[in-house]
Design a protein around this nucleic acid. Structure first.
Length: 673
RNA sequence: GCUGCUGUAGCUCAGUGGUAGAGCGCGUCCUUGGUAAGGACGAGGUCAUGGGUUCAAAUCCCAUCAGCAGCUCCA
C-alpha cells in the first residue's frame, strides 16, 4: 500500500508500487504531461522515483507553472556552471550564486581573470556535466564540520560566510554532484536532465558581500530555461529591449547629444529634444499654476557660506564639482605662500571662500522665503523652478540621460505649517498622478521611505517624525495603488515618497520624489508669525514630480519606444509628394497646416513614395500626408498613420481638426487606436 | 571610484604586423514613380589621444580620455 498526501491535504492510496509519474497520471493526463519532477517531504525526486510504501508521504508534483520551478532549475544550473569553471580554472574561489530575475549568476575569484572568450569552453564543460546526469545530493553537517569541510575545500569565502553570515545556524547543508561540493541551502532539481537550455550572458565585477572595501570578484551572469525555444524567445526579448534603449533612439531620432569635448554626463539638447523638453515643462507649469505655485528663477551658483549653513559643504564635497575659489581670497592665499596641498586641506575643512555650482535648489529658495517677513496667512508658500543642478557623480555611474552630472529638476519647495502638511503632500501626489496618467505610465512603484528606529543618523524631534511619516502614508494612499514602506530609506532630514520605474533592461530609476524636511528650516532659522503673534518654524516639502527632466525624458523615450504622442512629437506630420508635379500643392498644404499650429515638414525629394514613407516611419513621424495629383484636384491629403497605416484621403481642414483634437486631448496611442 | 570589454567614414560595423574596407547616410545627375528601400557616378578616415616595441603598427605593449555591462554610490 502506498499513500501520498498532496499539497491540498487530500490523501491518495495505491494498492501497488507507484512512481511519481503514476501519481500525476492518476490526477490528470495534463498534469502527467506537464510534470517536471516531484518533491517528497521537500526533497526533489525524479518522475520515475518509486514512492516508498507504508507511511503516507507528502508529495508535490512540480510543473513549469510552479513559481519556484524555474528558479530551482536555474540554481542547479548555477552549480553546474561553477563546477565547469572549477574544472577549467583550478583554484577558483566560490562566493554566492543565487538566481535573479531572468537568470542566475555565480561570483567567483580566479587567479587569472575569466573573460568572455572562456564562455564557449565553460558552456561545453557544462554540457558535459549535464550529460553525465549525476544527481544533486544533499548533505547536512553540524556547524563545526561544515567549517572544516569548506576549509578542506579551500573555500575561504564559504568559511567566512558560515562564521559570520550564518553564525546562528547549528547545522548547514551542502549539495554534492560528482566531485563538486558546495555549501547551499537548496533545493535543487533531482537531476541535471531538467536543465533544458542555458547560456552564459556576461561577466562583470562585484564586491564580496557588496562591500567596496572587500575583494572584488567576477560575477558570471547566465540564464537557463526548460526549453531551447524559451531561451531563444528570452534572448530575442533582450535584443528587442535594446532597440528601445533611449541612448540608441536618442541618437537615431536626434533628440540629444553628449559630447566628449563638453564633458561626461553633460547633456546637449538638440532642437528636437529641446522641443520635447519644453513641451513637458509647459505641461507641468500649467498644472503648477492651477495648484497655486509661484515660479521663480535663481542662479546656478551660490556662496560657499550658503552651503555651509545648509550643511552640504564640505560634508558632501565628493559629490560636488570643485568650488570656484574666490579670486581675492585665492591671491591672498598665494601671497601667504599657500601650497596646493594646503588649499586642498582648507577645502576639506570647509575653510575656504568662494562659490559652489549648486548641487540642489533648496538653499536658494529658502533664502527667497527668508527675504520677507512671513505671516501664517501667507502659508503655504510654494516656490517652483526648473532648476539646473550639478553633481559630481562617480564616472562609472554616468550614462545616457538617466544618470548625468548636470540636470534640471522640476523642483519646488513648499513652506507649510504642521496643520497644512498632510493636505500639501496630497497635492504633490496629485501632481505626480496627473503626470504619470498623461503619459500612460502605469508601471511604476511607490516607496514610502521611513526612518530606521535603530539608527541615529536622523535629525529632528521623533514626535514630528511620527506625524510626518503618518502624513506620507496617508498621502501615498490617495494614489489608489500599492506602496511599500521602507524603514531606513528616509532622508536624514525627513520621510519621503519616491516613484520608481524600470528602464528597457530592467534597471530601476527613481523619478518623482516628495520629501518632508524639518532640518533645513531649522538650520536657516526660518520663521513665520502665527495667529498667536509669535514666531513659528515652517516645515519644508521638497518635491519634483518628474525628478529631473533628463532622467524623465530618458525613461519616456523608452516608454514610448521613440513614438511620442502627437502633442509631444517634435514633427507631428510630414507632407510627402508623390512626384515633383505636386510640389506646389504640397507647399500650400504645408503652410496651411503650419498656420493652424501643426508642426509639419515637407519631403519634396525626387524619391519614390515608398522610400519617403519608409523614412517617415523610421523617424517615428505620427502622420504622413501624401499629396498627389488626385489630392491637388480634390483639396485633400491622403493620411498615413504611423500606427494604423493608410487612412485614405480627407479634406485638409478635416485633417487639421483631427490633429488639433488629438493634441488637445493629449491622446496616448499604442499599437492600435 | 572598482572589475571586465570596447573605441576604424556622419551612423552600424568588417579588417589581427606589410598601400584603409562594406552597407546605410551625404552630394551631383538620370528617373516623375499613390503607401516601408529606383539607378549611376562621386566626396568623405592622422584607424580616440599620447607614448613605446618593430625595418614596418589600425593591428602588439603602457598610459590617458570616452563608451558599454555589472558592482559600489546617489545628500
Amino acid at each position: 500500500m502506498t499513500t501520498v498526501k498532496l499539497p491540498d491535504g487530500s490523501l491518495k492510496e495505491f494498492d501497488s508500487k507507484v512512481s511519481v509519474k503514476d501519481v500525476a497520471k492518476s490526477i490528470g493526463s495534463r498534469l502527467a504531461k506537464d510534470a517536471l519532477w516531484g518533491e517528497i517531504d521537500l526533497q526533489p525526486v525524479e518522475l520515475d522515483y518509486e514512492i516508498p510504501q507504508g507511511e503516507p508521504v507528502n508529495l508535490k508534483i512540480i510543473t513549469k507553472k510552479d513559481p519556484n520551478a524555474l528558479a530551482t532549475m536555474r540554481h542547479s544550473c548555477a552549480h553546474v556552471m561553477a563546477r565547469a569553471v572549477m574544472r577549467i580554472k583550478p583554484g577558483v574561489q566560490l562566493a554566492f550564486g543565487p538566481t535573479i530575475d531572468g537568470g542566475f549568476y555565480y561570483d567567483v575569484e580566479c587567479d587569472e581573470p575569466l573573460t568572455e572568450e572562456d564562455f564557449p569552453a565553460i558552456e561545453k564543460e557544462m554540457a558535459k556535466i549535464i550529460a553525465l546526469d549525476e544527481p544533486f545530493e544533499r548533505l547536512d553537517r553540524p556547524r563545526a564540520d561544515a567549517i572544516q569541510v569548506c576549509k578542506d575545500l579551500k573555500q575561504d569565502f564559504k568559511v567566512e560566510h558560515i562564521e559570520t553570515g550564518l553564525a546562528d545556524d547549528d547545522s548547514l547543508s551542502f549539495y554534492q554532484q560528482g566531485e563538486f561540493l558546495d555549501l547551499c541551502r537548496g533545493p535543487h532539481i533531482p537531476s541535471p536532465r531538467r536543465i533544458g537550455a542555458f547560456k552564459l550572458l556576461s561577466i562583470a565585477g562585484a564586491y564580496w558581500k557588496g562591500d567596496q572595501s572587500r575583494e572584488q570578484l567576477q560575477r558570471l551572469y547566465a540564464t537557463a530555461f526548460f526549453t531551447q525555444a524559451e531561451l531563444d524567445a528570452h534572448l530575442e526579448l533582450l535584443e528587442e529591449a535594446k532597440k528601445r534603449d533611449h541612448r540608441v533612439l536618442g541618437k537615431r531620432l536626434g533628440l540629444f547629444h553628449i559630447d566628449e569635448m563638453v564633458g561626461q554626463g553633460l547633456v546637449l539638447w538638440t532642437p528636437k529634444g529641446s522641443f520635447v523638453r519644453q513641451k513637458l515643462q509647459d505641461f507641468i507649469s500649467e498644472h503648477l499654476q492651477r495648484q497655486g505655485y509661484d515660479q521663480v528663477f535663481t542662479p546656478h551658483i551660490g556662496k560657499l557660506d550658503l552651503y555651509k549653513t545648509s550643511g552640504h559643504f564640505p560634508y558632501y564635497q565628493d559629490s560636488q564639482y570643485t568650488p570656484l575659489v574666490d579670486r581675492e581670497y585665492l591671491s591672498q592665499l598665494a601671497e601667504e605662500g599657500c601650497t596646493c596641498g594646503e588649499l586642498s586641506n582648507l577645502m576639506n575643512e570647509g575653510e575656504i571662500e568662494g562659490y559652489l555650482l549648486k548641487p540642489m535648489n533648496c538653499p536658494h529658495h529658502i533664502r527667497l522665503f527668508a527675504s520677507e517677513q512671513r505671516s501664517y496667512r501667507d502659508l503655504p508658500i510654494r516656490l517652483s523652478e526648473f532648476g539646473t543642478v550639478y553633481r559630481w557623480e562617480q564616472s562609472g555611474e554616468i550614462g545616457g540621460l538617466t544618470r548625468v552630472r548636470g540636470f534640471t529638476q522640476d523642483d519646488a519647495h513648499l513652506f507649510v505649517t504642521q496643520e497644512q502638511l498632510g493636505e500639501e503632500l496630497i497635492g504633490c501626489i496629485e501632481l505626480v498622478k496627473i503626470i504619470f496618467g498623461a503619459m500612460g505610465m502605469e508601471d511604476y512603484t511607490v516607496r514610502v521611505g521611513l526612518r530606521d528606529p535603530d539608527s541615529s543618523k536622523y535629525v529632528g524631534d521623533p514626535e514630528n517624525w511620527d506625524l510626518a511619516e503618518q502624513a506620507c502614508r496617508e498621502a501615498a494612499q490617495t494614489l489608489g495603488k500599492d506602496f511599500s514602506e521602507d524603514p531606513g530609506e528616509a532622508a536624514f532630514y525627513g520621510p519621503k515618497i519616491d516613484f520608481v520605474v524600470k528602464d528597457c533592461i530592467g534597471r530601476k530609476w527613481q523619478l518623482g520624489t516628495v520629501q518632508v524636511d524639518y532640518n533645513l528650516p531649522e538650520r536657516f532659522g526660518l520663521e513665520y508669525i502665527g495667529s498667536d503673534n509669535k514666531p513659528h518654524r515652517p516645515i519644508m516639502i521638497h518635491r519634483a514630480p518628474f525628478g529631473s527632466m533628463e532622467r524623465f525624458i530618458g525613461v519616456l523615450i523608452e516608454h514610448f519606444a521613440g513614438s511620442f504622442p502627437l502633442w509631444l512629437a517634435p514633427e507631428q506630420g510630414r507632407i510627402l509628394t508623390v512626384s515633383d508635379k505636386s510640389e506646389e500643392y504640397g507647399k500650400r498644404v504645408e503652410s496651411q497646416m503650419r498656420d493652424a499650429g501643426i508642426r509639419v515638414k515637407g519631403d519634396y525629394r525626387s524619391e519614390k513614395l515608398g522610400a519617403k514613407i519608409r523614412d517617415g516611419q523610421l523617424e517615428m513621424i505620427p502622420y504622413m500626408m501624401i499629396v498627389g495629383p488626385r489630392d491637388a484636384e480634390n483639396g485633400t491629403v491622403s493620411i498615413r498613420d504611423r500606427i494604423d497605416g493608410d487612412l485614405g484621403a480627407i479634406p485638409v481642414e478635416e485633417a487639421i481638426a483631427k490633429f488639433q483634437s488629438e493634441v488637445a486631448d493629449k491622446t496616448v496611442r499604442s499599437k492600435s487606436s
